[in-house]
Each structure stands twice: as structure tokens, then as C-alpha cells.
Design a protein around this nucleic acid. Structure first.
Lengths: 363, 363
DNA sequence: TCAAGGACCTAATACGTATTAGTGAAACCC
DNA sequence: GGGTTTCACTAATACGTATTAGGTCCTTGA
């Protein structure tokens, strides 16, 4: 029996399929499928038949072909991750990393595999073909991720009812996302500076345009107004010329605290930190420094000292996890909560904020 | 026309398939397939027809279903990555990371997407089901990665002719891999120690069993023999008891240099480093220390000082890239070179190896 | 005018599994 | 003993694409 069925295989060593089992066990392919899947109707079959099938499967070394399985059933237990940039950045300490870790962790816990669409993304970029984003349809749903994102192809996806979730807040209405509540967290940072006695602050943001940056700025302004500060001239951008000059001017203006945003590039913080160093200043003795959104533990020490930055942490890992959960809910067709979520940021005490040296009266 | 076909879609918002295009363009499904694939026979069709089909595909937002594609033929433009552990490790500085970066980089450059099989892997682990490795068949080929790997299911894949590549050397004959030449690199490290005047060395390896560890040991022994050293008692394992005691004994025995292997856990190096610190020793003044295989730039400073470890770097990024290249060759059916490759490791001068303090004569 | 040949396309089928509708036979009921 | 259930399966089809073997019509040449 064994030898017979073995030698029956073509020389090409085809892997056994259900129809092979069916032939050996003397039943139909459908019966094999039912029995092997252990469905109710499969369990209802005669015990004796079941055993014959199971034995045959064992003997032939049958393993279901996942491709055919996925074709026949609708789902494939795969979630897409489309990043609009390299998923594994060259810089190991890259601030995006914890998000990816969270995504993978939760996906793994839910038994979902992950498709990284870097290949498609690169091809799309090369060919300048926005339609290539459609390839994400191979997955059951997709996460989008990155500060700058082509909107048009994604609108198409939304129209088609394809489930997806952004990581990071989006302005476009109706698009599901999981982001961080930068507004509240940033306002809170300013409030803490005000509480420490600072009346003259400046905010330095990256020069690009992204919701995450806009939110921080919004929060800073809100916090400043709440503390009764003048918001005119509060905001500066990294493209506003030489940072050394800027810093000197601020000091002349009586500035005692600076708030900086921290993003994926880290340009603003790095630039300012260097300028502070060059000016021979120390934090928080000479100047208080708060950072909006450093990823937990991944970056930085303050200039002129080993203290951790004061500010807040972005809950990146949790964002990744929650995005996966939301996506799975959307795929199942039953979002359990809001489809647009903002997670709270953890305040970080740090060591770069203190009372201003000369508690001068404000103008 | 546009509106007609849009409203023509069922409420369920099915994704468009070739038969939809065929209906819109007034041709057969087969013609659609031929034209979209750009096969010779597809190109032979009338220009006018081709254009109609292409337009319809564009308008409907068609994307081929990779699962169906794979079932019908054998290509996906998707490569699997099966890691036997978390793909994104919690430890950001994890030594595997550069490999993943290399894999992603090359895959992206080749227009291939990446499937991370963590979900399946975890599910398989939970269910204790070794056959679940078969799920990797949804991809065109797969990279396997991790020190300890279930061999049986992978042998089955090999039997079935499924293309895959190990990252890391394997003992099993016939299995394609891309690894690092630890033997030569380790022998070279010992040679450099010998050239610096060391005659009495010890080698500390992890207590587990893995090809990568075996290779380093082999290289150390080879290097020691080449330098005319006694190899008896040269090798110690981390499970050989208390490292403080061990270190003291070594010093008593006149040991002037220690070689340590660095793996994913980093246990051996971390443990020894701590012991050296506790003993109040400094490298290289009191003891020369060489490390076999730190990943470039990701880890470590020597104990009692800021110097980089002497030893060699594992070309992880390049391993990842080369593994992708090899896998694509295997998928194409034409391996351009050897299917078992060892990449050279870059020697690192570092600052933890110097001439022994007391250049004592050897026994 | 008929056959040959080419241009253009279609019918049919394969890939391997899931699932539903249904079929034949036996058992049971009054 | 006619009807209804229940049992134990099977036939048929869907899933979406690839591929091969033609089929139809038109042109061309003799």
C-alpha cells in the first residue's frame, strides 16, 4: 500500500494533495477537506472513515497548501505595512523603530503575518506611479506610516472600502488613524515651564509641514495663552537662518526657556543642541530646554551634561499595537471604538528644565 | 462609461478582477491576462484592444491577486522572512538588526516585498506545530534566520524544491546559506594577539551549540596552533561556573589575553566585561580583550574605558543583501554562483589589545 | 476560387482547497 | 408499507489567474 502510493507519484516529487489522500482512502476530495479541517460536518462523518483519511494523510505526509487555502477562503491573515520610506532605517536608534516593534508584536500575538511593502513603495517611487499603492490590496488590510504621504491613491482605497489605518493623525476626514495627542502634551510642557517661573519662551519647530508638527505648535500656543504669555514671535523654524545667531538674539530678548520639537530626523533638536554647546551654555543652569516627543529611551542626552531631556514621550510602541488592533476591527467590519484615536503622551520630568536663573519680571 | 462601471459594482465593493476588466473592455478574461502580463502573445494583440484593456484596468483600479497568481503560476514578487523569534527585537541595539536592514534594502531595490512570518511562527509555536513552517510557501521563496532552527520541516521544504536561503552557515549538506567566515576571522584575531606578543590566551564561548559558535572556536584553535600555542584548556564556556573565579584562575595561570564571542544575546561578553570590571582590571593595560563578531557600530565599549573592542565585524548588512540576491537566483532557477557562501569579516583594530604587560616567556 | 497563412482573439483547463446543495440508502414511525 | 428522518457522503462550484490549443475571419498568392 505504502509503496504503491509512493511509486505512484510522478518523478517530479509532487507534494501530496487532498485528492491523493482521497484516492488512497477511497473517499471524495471534499470529504478529505471536511475531515482534515475538523469542521462540524467533518466531525459528523463515520469514525471509521475519518480514521482512514487521517491515516492516509499522515502516511502521505500531507500538509495543506496555504496558497490554495487562502484563495478558497477570503482572508489570508496578512496585514500590510506601507511606510513611504525604509522600514528598517539605517540609523538603528531611529525614532520610528518602536512603532514597528509594536506593530509586529501585536500582529504576531494575533496570528497575523506582516507584509512590508518596501519593494512596491520603491518601485512606485521610481516609476513615479501613485497607483502602485494599490498593491497593498494583497493583504487583508494595511497600515500606512510616514510623515508625508500621497493622498490620492489612498482616497481611492478608502472609496473601495479597503480597510486601512494611518499611524499618525491625519487631517482628511473619515480616515482612520492612531496618533498621539501632541496638542495636550505640548500644552502641558509649556504649562510646566510656566509653573517653573518662565515667562519668555521660544518654540523651535522643523521647517516642514506635517500634522505632527502642526499639533505640537498648536499645543505650544495653547499652553502659552493659558499661561498668559505673549504668543507673537513665539514660534521659529529651523529654516529661519543661522541657529547660533537666533539663539543669541533670544538670550538678548530675555528668553529663559526653549521648546524644541523632536521628529524622525531630529534636525531641530540636534541643531539647537549644537548651538547651545557652541554658546557655552548649560541646561538647565543657563537655559531651560524642553523637548516635544522623544521616543522612550531611544535618544539623547542634553547638551553639556548627562541629564535626560524634559518634555514628553511618544507612546510609539502602543501606537503600533493599537493600530493593529484597530485595523483588525475594521477588517472584521466592526470597529469596537472610535476609528480616529489619539493616545496620551507620557510627561517626562527629565533634568533640563529648572527655574530661570534671574527670575526677571516680564516686560 | 466611468459612472456606469462604477455603479455596476456590487454593494460589497469587491475588488476588481480580470473578468471585470474583460467585461468593460469587451474581451475575454484570457486576453486580459495576456495583455496585463505583457507576454509575447499579449503584445501581439491589436494595439487598440490593448489600450482598451489597459484603460479599463486603470479605471477599475485593478491589482492582481498575488495568491491567485501564485496558485496559477509561481510568482509573487514576495519574499518570506521567517525568523524563529521576534523580527523587531525589543532591544533596539539588537545585533540582528543590520541583517534585517540589509534584507529590506536589497529586497526593496529588487522590487520585492517582504513577508514577515512572525504571526505564523508564533501561532506555530503556540500550537507546537512544526508543519506550520509550510506557510512560507505563499512567498516565492524564503529566508530563514536564527541560531536555532527546526530542521525537519525545512528538510521537507527542500525536498519539495521550495527555494530558500539560510542566513548563517548550516551543517546540513545541500542547504543554501549566506554566512560569515568566522573561522578565518577568528584565526586572524588570534594571530594578531600572537603578533602582539601574547602566548597564553583563553577563549570564552557561549554555552549553547550553534554553527556560528563552533566556527569561531574552530578558528581560534586553528589560529592558536598556527601560532604554536598549546590548545589544551584554551576553550571555556559561560556555563563553566562563576566568571569571577574563572578570570582569577586565568590570571594566575599567566593569561594575558582573552578572546570572547559575541552573539545575539551578548551573554558571554557582558558577563566577562562585568567580571573584568569587578576585578578592577583595565583593557588593554591589564588584560587584552578581543571580541569575535560585534556588529558594526551597534555595541559596546570596553570595560574601564571608552575604547572600541578589538576583534572583527560581522558584515551583517551585506549578509542580508547577499541572501536576498541568492534567493532571487534560486527562484529564477539559475544560481549564478555558489549556493553556500561565506562572507569575509572586517578586522577591527580597536583599542583593547596591546602587548602584554609583562612579556613573560611561555612555559 | 481555393488553400495557405497570418492576425486576433477565445474556450477550456489547471492550480489545490473550501463549501454548499444535494443524493442514495438505511432507519425509524405509526 | 408509505412517508419522514437521519446518516454518510459526494458532486459541483467558487476562488482569480496563467497558459495552451485552437477558432474565426481576413488577406494573399496561384
Amino acid at each position: 500500500m505504502t509503496d504503491a502510493s509512493r511509486t505512484e507519484r510522478p518523478a517530479g516529487r509532487r507534494r501530496p494533495r487532498q485528492s491523493d489522500i482521497a484516492r488512497v482512502a477511497g473517499v471524495s476530495q471534499a470529504a478529505v477537506s471536511l475531515i482534515l479541517r475538523g469542521t462540524p460536518s467533518g466531525m459528523a462523518l463515520a469514525k471509521e472513515t475519518r480514521q482512514r483519511v487521517l491515516d492516509a494523510a499522515e502516511e502521505l505526509g500531507y500538509v495543506p497548501d496555504p496558497v490554495a487555502t487562502r484563495l478558497a477562503s477570503a482572508r489570508n491573515a496578512m496585514l500590510g505595512l506601507y511606510t513611504f520610506s525604509t522600514t528598517f532605517p539605517t540609523d538603528v536608534a531611529h525614532s520610528y523603530y518602536p512603532i514597528l516593534a509594536g506593530v509586529e508584536e501585536e500582529a504576531g500575538a494575533q496570528g497575523q503575518d506582516l507584509i512590508l511593502f518596501t519593494g512596491s513603495a520603491r518601485a512606485a517611487a521610481r516609476a513615479d506611479d501613485p497607483a502602485a499603492v494599490r498593491r497593498v490590496r494583497v493583504a487583508d488590510g494595511c497600515l500606512f506610516f510616514g510623515r508625508h504621504v500621497p493622498e490620492e491613491p489612498i482616497r481611492r482605497l478608502a472609496e473601495d472600502g479597503f480597510p486601512f489605518v494611518y499611524i499618525g493623525r491625519r487631517d482628511e476626514p473619515g480616515i482612520p488613524y492612531v496618533g498621539a495627542d501632541y496638542v495636550s502634551a505640548s500644552a502641558d510642557v509649556v504649562a510646566r515651564l510656566a509653573a517653573a517661573g518662565h515667562r519668555e519662551l521660544r518654540y523651535l519647530r522643523e521647517h516642514d509641514q506635517a500634522p505632527a508638527s502642526d499639533d505640537r505648535q498648536e499645543g505650544v500656543l495653547r499652553g502659552a495663552r493659558a499661561a498668559g504669555m505673549d504668543t507673537a514671535g513665539l514660534v521659529a523654524r529651523t529654516d529661519g537662518g543661522d541657529l547660533d545667531t537666533l539663539l543669541r538674539r533670544w538670550l538678548d530678548e530675555g528668553v529663559t526657556g526653549v521648546v524644541v520639537e523632536q521628529t524622525d530626523t531630529g534636525a531641530a533638536l540636534a541643531g539647537l543642541g549644537a548651538a547651545v554647546d557652541r554658546a557655552g551654555l548649560r541646561c538647565p543652569q543657563d537655559l531651560s530646554l524642553a523637548v516635544l516627543g522623544a521616543a522612550t529611551g531611544t535618544r539623547g542626552r542634553a547638551p553639556g551634561g548627562g541629564a535626560a531631556f524634559s518634555g514628553f514621550d511618544v507612546p510609539m510602541r502602543e501606537m503600533g499595537r493599537d493600530a493593529v488592533r484597530l485595523l483588525l476591527e475594521l477588517i472584521a467590519g466592526a470597529p469596537g471604538g472610535a476609528t480616529r484615536r489619539l493616545l496620551p503622551c507620557e510627561p517626562v520630568e527629565g533634568g533640563t528644565v529648572a527655574a530661570p536663573r534671574s527670575a526677571k519680571k516680564n516686560t
